[in-house]
């Protein structure tokens, strides 16, 4: 059976450090404002007791990718293993995919004048290496999971701030933090 690769983002572990985002930027030598992975602050009360919580997302390699449908040149393909690949050679930089993606994932490269997005580092995966962001997270908070194989126990597909998953059926899943005890003065 074909694979269904997706990210599993452990918010319980994530310290919001942005190392994933910046290691990706560094490895792919992206322009200063471009991000293939983005770390975003979650609402403070996401688990009840107030905490600093973050979530790190990249392309969600959706089952039903809106980017692919929008693209006039057919630059997007979905591989057997589920990875949604953007072929920059074909891209004409119309930015429609960026509009159509519910997660605003594809970003314009102002120098190449083409779109750019997370490839799940498929060329690394293909030779048995982990994606940079997965390998470089100091907390090992990101994993690649074949969701056709396993459904990690406490993984959820929806979290606050994450757009309606019924649109494109993203493969990314999350592990939500467990609230700790707090004794606060205020």
């Amino acid at each position: 059976m074909a694979k269904k690769l997706g990210f599993l983002v452990n918010i319980e572990r994530c310290i919001g450090c942005h190392a994933c985002e910046i290691s990706c930027k560094s490895f792919y030598q992206l322009e200063p404002n471009m991000r293939r992975r983005r770390v975003q602050e979650l609402p403070e009360d996401v688990v009840g007791t107030p905490v600093r919580a973050f979530v790190s997302t990249a392309c969600n390699h959706c089952d039903d990718p809106a980017c692919k449908k929008a693209c006039p040149v057919g630059a997007y393909t979905k591989r057997e293993d589920g990875i949604v690949v953007h072929n920059q050679d074909l891209c004409i930089g119309c930015q429609m995919c960026g509009k159509a993606c519910p997660y605003s994932v594809p970003m314009f490269n102002p120098v190449k004048k083409k779109m750019d997005k997370c490839s799940m580092c498929y060329d690394r995966l293909d030779v048995g290496q982990l994606p940079i962001c997965v390998e470089k997270c100091p907390l090992e908070a990101i994993q690649i999971v074949d969701y056709n194989e396993v459904q990690p126990a406490n993984a959820v597909s929806e979290i606050p701030t994450f757009a309606d998953t019924s649109i494109t059926h993203p493969t990314t899943h999350f592990i939500l933090p467990k609230p700790g005890k707090q004794s606060r003065r205020f």
């Binding site: 449908k69 040149v73 074909l90 004409i92 930089g93 429609m96 004048k113 083409k114």
Partner: peptide, 22 residues
């Protein structure tokens, strides 16, 4: 002018099977 690659605009018809933009 909206395209990053105006000279490649002709390619925009490639995905007519699914893309409304095409």
């Amino acid at each position: 002018f909206h395209l990053g690659q105006p000279f490649a605009a002709y390619r925009a018809i490639l995905n007519i099977r699914v893309s409304w933009l095409s």
